[in-house]
């Protein structure tokens, strides 16, 4: 009995210690911290693999956000679902995530978020295969159900009569293509350039078939946007500066981006110079045609019944004035 009582006391003590320890954690230090002052918690997909996401880290490293008075922390989420959920819970203030996820989330009132800008409005998606690997009816891999790559591959399926298969990330797709289990897997820069250097070839260039559309969309938590609108304007001013850096000083940008994405500086330079319209990709200037194309693809893919009304869906007020579009009216 005494032993049981002692065990219960020890257990209780451990629980109290654990509670005290968790209470001591300063949540504001992590990406999940609540916003205070000029803090801006950003959740983005692929900050460690995609240059148009990694530029945010470049902005942090160069102190450009700090110069605008922003204390930015970056959380790298995988896929639209993960990236957006931290926004809806209020753990992140701003999210940059897959186009379809953001549009669908913005339609739910309880998600408490607003789409404020398109991001990387260049269709940089390619389907790469080992050189010489062709098939009469090729099978194209994509990441997973509900992803941007699925949206594109369904669009390609309608135009090119190809088979599709969910495989996973770019690495898994390349493995599957090399093993002959699919004909080609999806890729973006710098992965495309890196694999071409290793003997891959582009089987399908999605831009040529489907045209340009934003790879991602920027969404903000409504509470944060109401409390700190100036922070969002400052954020976009820095992004504009970062975009200009990539477009006008590509070699220096490649050098800064290479270690963040795990490729060599020459490969990153090549990847950026191989990007067909760098100035369009690295620009916040709203491309209405791209947004309409995204809406059409979502309708034809069965994700939504009616086209997106961008006039009410896209809140451009935080973007620098010269980068907004009036094509949607309002």
């Amino acid at each position: 009995m005494t032993r049981i009582a002692r065990s219960v006391r020890v257990l209780f003590g451990v629980l109290v210690l654990l509670l005290a320890a968790t209470g001591c954690v300063n949540e504001a230090d992590g990406p999940g911290g609540r916003s205070g002052g000029n803090r801006l918690n950003i959740s983005a997909t692929g900050t460690d693999s995609l240059p148009f996401m990694a530029i945010l880290q470049v902005g942090i490293d160069k102190g450009w956000f700090a110069k605008e008075g922003l204390d930015v922390s970056l959380y790298s989420g995988g896929g639209g679902g993960n990236t957006l959920r931290v926004l809806t819970t209020g753990d992140a203030d701003l999210a940059i995530a897959g186009n379809t996820s953001v549009v669908l989330a913005s339609r739910q009132h309880s998600a408490n978020l607003t789409v404020v800008a398109p991001w990387f409005q260049l269709n940089d998606f390619h389907w790469i295969a080992p050189r010489g690997q062709h098939a009469p009816k090729p099978t194209l891999g994509y990441s997973s159900g509900g992803s941007s790559t699925e949206l594109l591959v369904r669009g390609l399926q309608r135009k090119l009569h190809v088979e599709t298969q969910a495989v996973g990330g770019m690495g898994d797709n390349w493995t599957a293509a090399r093993a002959g289990k699919i004909t080609a897997g999806w890729s973006m820069q710098p992965f495309t350039t890196e694999k071409i250097q290793q003997g891959a070839e582009i089987l399908v260039d999605a831009r040529k078939v489907l045209g340009d559309l934003p790879a991602d969309l920027v969404a903000v938590n409504n509470d944060y946007a109401n409390r700190k609108p100036e922070n969002l304007r400052a954020f976009f001013r820095v992004v504009r500066r970062l975009d200009d850096f990539v477009v006008h000083d590509t070699a220096a940008a490649a050098k800064a981006l290479a270690p963040l994405t795990g490729v060599s500086a020459p490969t990153m330079t090549r990847a950026l110079t191989d990007t067909p319209d760098l100035a369009k990709g690295y620009s916040l200037r709203v491309d209405p045609d791209g947004l309409r194309r995204l809406s059409d693809l979502m309708v034809s893919g069965g994700l939504i019944e009616h086209p997106v009304d961008w006039r009410t869906t896209l809140d451009q007020r935080y973007l620098p004035a010269g980068l907004r579009t009036s094509a949607f009216g309002g």
Binding site: G81, S144, A166, L303
Partner: peptide, 21 residues
């Protein structure tokens, strides 16, 4: 969840990504 194009796991992943909670 990872690879299929049908099944309960696939559908949960799909709905997670498309934010249909």
């Amino acid at each position: 969840f990872t690879t299929a194009q049908a099944g309960l796991g696939y559908r949960i992943r799909y709905l997670y990504e498309t934010f249909e909670s």
